[in-house]
């Protein structure tokens, strides 16, 4: 615990400094509340609307998690497919890479057209954001598996299934987590965008409506909560990674 504080003290102090600058700055320069509300007003608004915010928070979190879960399944399956067939590697993989250049935001309204205004379209937008990092990193991970270890396993009589379970999967795990961390961080953005395009609930909808009503403190409380959600998801994946890849811990200390 002591080490934790020692390590993270600088960033905590920096955040506190920013908070003080925010509060003092908005008071000194008399900035209108619809441009930048005072931090204290944002916090008060948060407490006053805590019930409502909690409900919207859970909805947005649910959308992000569901989209992420489907992306993990589809992304991993695609990666396995790409790795197992040279035809898939030649056709699917370049497409997956090229698709990263498509502005996903421009595709998002199509999701609304396809999946309607209910939760389906939000999940679809989250998937648009999170599928590619997971699929691509996992495919790269499978490819990075040391072929010499695979050959050794073959001389020991390992079949396809054993090669996959004992060699490919553990080899790809680090890169899978790299992709998952990226995906977790942007999944909240995807859910927010999905709600902006049309929705009845969620923090994205909340901030959009608050902005329409020029209620700066409500917009900011929504944004702060969305950021917290993104950080929370990222840290959750980080924790999972530490558990699954505990064997790397020693070397990290050494670096």
């Amino acid at each position: 615990m002591k080490r934790f504080f020692k390590k993270h003290m600088p960033v905590v102090l920096f955040i506190l400094l920013l908070a003080v600058l925010w509060e003092v700055g908005t008071r000194i320069f008399q900035i209108p509340h619809y441009i930048i509300p005072r931090l204290s007003d944002v916090l008060v608004s948060m407490v006053e609307n805590s019930g409502l915010l909690a409900r919207h928070f859970v909805i947005t979190l649910g959308e992000a998690l569901l989209g992420l879960a489907i992306s993990i399944v589809l992304g991993t399956l695609s990666a396995i497919w790409i790795d197992s067939s040279s035809l898939a590697r030649k056709t699917l993989y370049p497409l997956v890479v090229a698709s990263q250049t498509i502005p996903i935001i421009a595709l998002s309204p199509i999701m609304v057209m396809w999946f309607g205004y209910e939760i389906g379209s939000k999940i679809a937008v989250v998937m648009l954001f999170t599928f590619f990092p997971i699929a691509m990193n996992t495919a790269d991970g499978f490819r990075s598996a040391d072929p010499d270890i695979g050959e050794l396993l073959r001389t020991m009589g390992a079949g396809k299934r054993e090669l996959f379970l004992k060699w490919k999967i553990p080899s790809a795990l680090p890169e899978f987590f790299t992709g998952l961390k990226m995906a977790a961080a942007i999944s909240v953005g995807g859910a927010t965008l999905g709600e902006w395009l049309g929705g009845e609930a969620g923090l994205g909808m909340y901030t959009k409506r608050a902005a329409n009503m020029l209620r700066g403190e409500s917009v900011f409380s929504g944004v702060l909560l969305l950021s917290a959600m993104g950080i929370m998801l990222f840290l959750a994946v980080l924790a999972l990674e530490r558990i699954c890849l505990s064997y790397r811990k020693e070397s990290k200390v050494g670096q």
């Binding site: 040391d146 010499d148 270890i149 050959e151 050794l152 001389t155 020991m156 004992k166 060699w167 553990p170 795990l173 890849l245 064997y247 790397r248």
Partner: peptide, 13 residues
């Protein structure tokens, strides 16, 4: 078969 490289799996003890 014992290859030249040790080929140990980094994720195994």
């Amino acid at each position: 078969y014992m290859p030249q490289k040790d080929c140990l799996m980094p994720w195994r003890t």
